[in-house]
């Protein structure tokens, strides 16, 4: 297996180099320094910014320099806008994003798979019909409606200070990004997490669940009709065993595909949620950098996301082989 992983990584090196080339070339179509400083910048400040990121050198030199930086994990280049090293910027933003995305993904997948199993098992009965109706209803409403309605009712009317719900409208406590806070006072950490992250997580679960339950139901319905399910019943297996052992294990390939597709978003985050809830995560950082024409941040983040996607794809293939004995990695 490891030789397979290494081989896949090697195959993807040219792909990744190509992506970096494309990103760097397309970002330089318009002069980034002019874009950042505006037309009325002084010659002096123009040159300072240009030299700061090495943009005065030939493109090919910049390219190899950038590749070398990435390979050696050297993210010390500074943001033009925030005047901080990009590595530090990302290191601050990723935990905040993960505070939302990781629980959201786990909860969504868990609940959706469960509902999918229940619906397929009671296919055509009222419980299935009701849940599917709710799923369609849930998908048909815009993300923005959930955010606005959620913030108004859960954060403002019934939440906030003295409210019955533990949610706040927006904000983030940077202590949440630190492991010592979680280890030191776990109950306070959970309370703080609920206050700032509970509502965004709830909303992203609701939004994703409509699509996911329908998908998992379709997967499971296909499973219920399989011959080996009849065999299992003929052996005397209980419904629970059939659902959670026979069907679930066979459905792992589509489940993994589905979950892994959303894995890069664990790091990228939801731009909408982070902006509306003022979460200082990756999505908001990227949007802020684009708006501010903060060229080095955009370039490094694009490279980072590309790497995450490539690694996810490789991980997905490895997981296929783990769950399905018929898949051979070679």
């Amino acid at each position: 297996m490891w030789s397979y992983v290494v081989r896949r990584l090697l195959y993807n090196i040219p792909v990744y180099l190509g992506i970096i080339l494309l990103v760097m070339a397309s970002l330089r179509v318009n002069d980034p320094v002019t874009a950042f400083l505006g037309k009325n910048a002084t010659e002096e400040s123009y040159l300072a910014i240009q030299q700061n990121f090495g943009l005065d050198r030939p493109f090919i030199v910049q390219y190899f320099d950038r590749v070398w930086n990435i390979v050696t994990f050297d993210f010390s280049a500074t943001s033009w806008e925030q005047k901080r090293p990009i590595g530090e910027l990302v290191a601050d933003a990723v935990p905040a994003t993960a505070m939302i995305t990781v629980p959201a993904l786990v909860i969504t997948a868990g609940i959706s798979i469960l509902i999918g199993l229940v619906c397929s098992f009671f296919r055509g009965r009222w419980i299935d019909k009701t849940l599917m109706l709710l799923a369609v209803l849930g998908m048909s409403i815009s993300f923005l409606v959930y955010i606005i309605v959620g913030q108004y009712f859960f954060g403002y009317q019934f939440g906030g200070d003295g409210g019955i719900l533990p949610f706040d409208i927006e904000g983030y406590d940077v202590r949440l990004s630190k492991l010592s806070f979680w280890l030191g006072s776990p109950f306070e950490a959970i309370g703080t997490w609920m206050r700032f992250c509970g509502l965004p997580v709830l909303i992203s679960v609701i939004v994703a669940m409509g699509y996911d339950t329908r998908f998992y139901r379709a997967v499971m319905v296909e499973e219920t009709g399989r011959d080996y399910i009849t065999t299992a019943r003929a052996k005397g297996a209980t419904s629970t065993k059939i659902m959670f052992v026979h069907m679930l294990k066979n459905a792992m390939i589509p489940i993994i595909t589905r979950v892994m597709i959303s894995l890069p978003f664990l790091i990228v985050g939801s731009i909408l949620l982070e902006v509306f809830f003022s979460i200082p995560g990756m999505g908001r950082t990227l949007i802020g950098a684009i708006n501010a024409k903060d060229f080095p941040v955009v370039e490094y983040m694009s490279a980072l996301f590309a790497a995450v996607v490539i690694l996810t794809v490789i991980l997905t293939d490895v997981l296929y082989a783990v769950v399905d004995p018929r898949v051979r990695l070679s």
Partner: peptide, 17 residues
């Protein structure tokens, strides 16, 4: 009472030994 089926290719669960 035990039962065996027509399609041996699909009657066994592929992901268990």
């Amino acid at each position: 009472i035990a039962m065996i089926f027509q399609e041996p290719m699909t009657s066994l669960n592929p992901v268990f030994t």
